[in-house]
């Protein structure tokens, strides 16, 4: 199962947010920033955004499209889509297990 972001250190979490943000279609840098803020509830700085984008692009998880003016959209690659799906399923499993245990403890 592909897992291409968990070893990215401080960029692991921002990278996952970016992959999730791109999962409904291509977005440029500023659109990713605002979308990530809406998803996570906290702002992502431009330095962090581009540090993560460079890593994701270098690993073939996203690809850059032709820029329009100064806005360059990015989209998920096939590998990126498989990676974000695997990550979210793993997190969903973790969430289910955790909530199940909490409910069991509460009883």
């Amino acid at each position: 199962m592909p897992d291409g972001v968990s070893d990215l250190g401080r960029f692991a979490e921002p990278s996952l947010y970016i992959l999730v943000s791109l999962s409904d279609g291509p977005k440029h840098g500023y659109a990713i920033m605002t979308d990530v803020e809406a998803i996570s509830g906290s702002a992502m700085g431009p330095g962090t955004l581009y540090g993560a984008l460079a890593r994701l692009e270098g690993r073939g998880l996203i690809e850059a499209l032709e820029p329009v003016d100064r806005r360059r959209p990015y989209r998920l690659t096939g590998l990126g889509e498989a990676t974000v799906r695997a990550q979210l399923e793993r997190l969903a499993g973790l969430t289910q297990t955790g909530l199940g245990r909490l409910h069991g403890t509460a009883k």
């Binding site: 440029h28 840098g29 500023y30 431009p46 955004l49 820029p67 100064r70 806005r71 360059r72």
Partner: peptide, 13 residues
Amino acid sequence: RYEDEFLGVLAEA
């Protein structure tokens, strides 16, 4: 590779 679009993001925000 990134300067132009990076400055574009900074111009928007």
